[in-house]
Design a protein around this nucleic acid. Structure first.
Length: 481
RNA sequence: GCCAGCGUAUCCGAGUAGUUAAGGAGGCGGCCUGCAGAGCCGUUGCUUUCAGCAUCGAGGGUGCAAAUCCCUCCGCUGGCUCCA
């Protein structure tokens, strides 16, 4: 299996530190607003990776944080005159609700920044004692100079550049960059409290953590000094991820993460969807018009590293394609049954196996979902052709194999969450007395209507079909005998 | 300016050297159907059909062979201390 590693700018064979186990951390959201489609893209990208690693037999320990204290939350809190905890709680709840609808699997844990303040303070103290950080006026800064390879992390430095790295980055040394910092590149580990802000007590007085520190601390605490996969959006490469690496490697003296994976953006009119540009579409709004699974399909039908250009029409093709899949599943469910094995059925069986192999091959190549989904659609076309065009009768073993295939698809893509039981999903009729009665009544109506059709009493049979549709029962006619 | 990446047919979106540029959506034509729905097939660059010529932002280069590698240029997006 290969993954594209942002640290080395190339695809690499995925080999975890410990066999069979993967330690994974994903930068989550800052909770001061409703999640938009861009957040969903990131969450689904790493959900897909999580699922696929599990499918490959790895035991995945995945941690994703909530940043529940930062400038924007404080600002929002001051504007609405609400406690910052109420705001963060509200948006964490909403985020979790949305993620559940999008069928994003639960992480191993989701720590909040405010849960780890003590650990942040300890971590910061340790960095100071090792000479990697310094305190100025109640704030603590990381000293980038103490970490020589800083500039080359997650960024290529051109070999022919005349200037040394330092010169490149320190030309503005004497322009204003915050009076307390010793180097323009230094960043805050601990921020001194401003009047009216939430605060925690620390050895440097009242204050709160800087932006980058929580991730380093959570990783150390919940996953260890070195992890396998660190994920997040492209926009976090710098400064956030570079700073995390600097802090953590200065702290432990060990490599921080083996692979960095970054997902692409959702764009609107070829601009990044973001809160600051106010061009975002929230998932909650899109769900009003589209099934969350259609949104999921839309997002995974492009590669996780590339960007989607979203327009309000973008969901339409996704919806149609997704419905085609559902229709095919229904067709198989209602197909005529025969225990005999036909040659054509054997061919279909082997196509299912082939399709699965091809999907695995595509996913092994840096989670290439577009190619994998193309394989899925090709198989479904074959099945439609056989069952609708050729009136293929299916047997139990085919049904089982198809069901297993669907479960495999759901396991790695999460697009058929209704597949829980051992049966196909659309046999809504149970076994109790009432259900049997309903079943008999429906059969009675359908049989009667078919008799009418045989007698070419189409106006009556069309009314019945329309009325049944109003009740949510769709009839799809076949040829009249 | 520096760094990363992008530019593929009407649109979305794969494809990093080896016969037909995956798949989807839309359009057109056909099949099926009492109708509808669903589905299937073909087509969707150009030219006087079965043949030929093009084609992956533009131009050049390497090579038996290029959407794919190299160079130059054009255009676009993102990051460069708020960000998924």
């Amino acid at each position: 299996m290969k993954v594209y590693n942002s640290l080395t700018f190339q695809k690499e064979e995925f080999v975890p530190l410990e066999p069979e186990k993967v330690k994974m951390y994903v930068c989550g959201v800052t909770v001061y607003g409703s999640p938009h489609l861009g957040h969903a893209k990131s969450a689904i990208a790493f959900d897909l990776i999580h699922r696929y690693l599990k499918y490959k037999g790895y035991e995945v320990n995945i941690v994703k944080n909530y940043t529940d204290i930062d400038d924007k939350i404080i600002k929002s809190s001051q504007e609405s005159n609400e406690d910052y905890r109420i705001i963060s709680k509200r948006y964490i709840d909403e985020y979790e609700e949305i993620m559940e609808m999008l069928n994003v699997e639960k992480d191993t844990r989701n720590p909040r920044a405010t849960e780890v303040i003590d650990l942040i303070i300890k971590f910061t103290q340790e960095l100071i004692s090792k000479g990697h950080a310094y305190e100025r006026n109640g704030s603590v800064y990381f000293s980038v100079k103490s970490f020589p390879k800083y500039n080359s992390i997650l960024q290529r430095i051109k070999e022919h550049a005349n200037n040394s790295e330092e010169e490149d980055y320190l030309v503005d040394q004497d322009t204003a960059f915050g009076e307390d910092k010793l180097d323009k590149r230094d960043f805050a580990l601990w921020k001194k409290m401003k009047e009216g802000e939430p605060y925690w007590e620390s050895p440097w007085g009242k204050g709160r953590p800087g932006w980058h520190i929580e991730c380093s601390v959570m990783i150390l605490n919940y996953l260890g000094e070195t992890i396998d996969i660190h994920g997040g959006g492209q926009d976090l490469r710098f400064p956030h991820h570079r700073n995390e690496i600097a802090q953590s490697e200065s702290y432990s003296g060990k490599p921080f993460a083996k692979y960095f994976l970054h997902n692409g953006y959702v764009n609107v009119n070829n601009e990044k969807m973001s809160k600051s540009l106010n061009n975002f579409f929230t998932v909650a709004d899109i769900i009003k018009d589209y099934d969350p699974l259609v949104i999921r399909w839309y997002l995974i039908s492009s590669h996780y590293r590339s960007s989607n250009n979203y327009t309000p029409d973008s969901m339409e093709p996704a919806k149609k394609t997704y419905n085609r899949l559902i229709n095919t599943i229904k067709k198989v469910n209602y197909a005529e049954f025969s225990e005999e094995t036909s040659k054509q059925l054997n061919v279909l069986n082997s196509k299912i196996i082939e399709s699965k192999d091809k999907i695995i091959e595509a996913m092994d190549d840096d989670f290439d979902t577009p190619v994998a989904l193309a394989e899925l659609l090709t198989l479904f076309r074959e099945i439609n052709k056989a069952i609708l065009q050729d009136d293929l009768k299916i047997n139990q073993s085919f049904k089982n194999q198809f069901l297993n295939y669907l479960k495999f698809i759901n396991e790695i893509f999460g697009i058929f969450p209704f597949l829980k039981s051992k049966t196909l999903p659309f046999s809504t009729v149970g076994t109790n007395e009432k259900d049997n009665l309903i079943k008999s009544l429906i059969n009675l109506i359908v049989d009667t209507r078919n008799k009418l059709r045989e007698k070419k009493l189409y106006d009556i049979s069309d009314i019945i079909r329309d009325r049944l549709k109003e009740l949510g029962l769709d009839i799809e006619d076949k040829k009249v005998k």
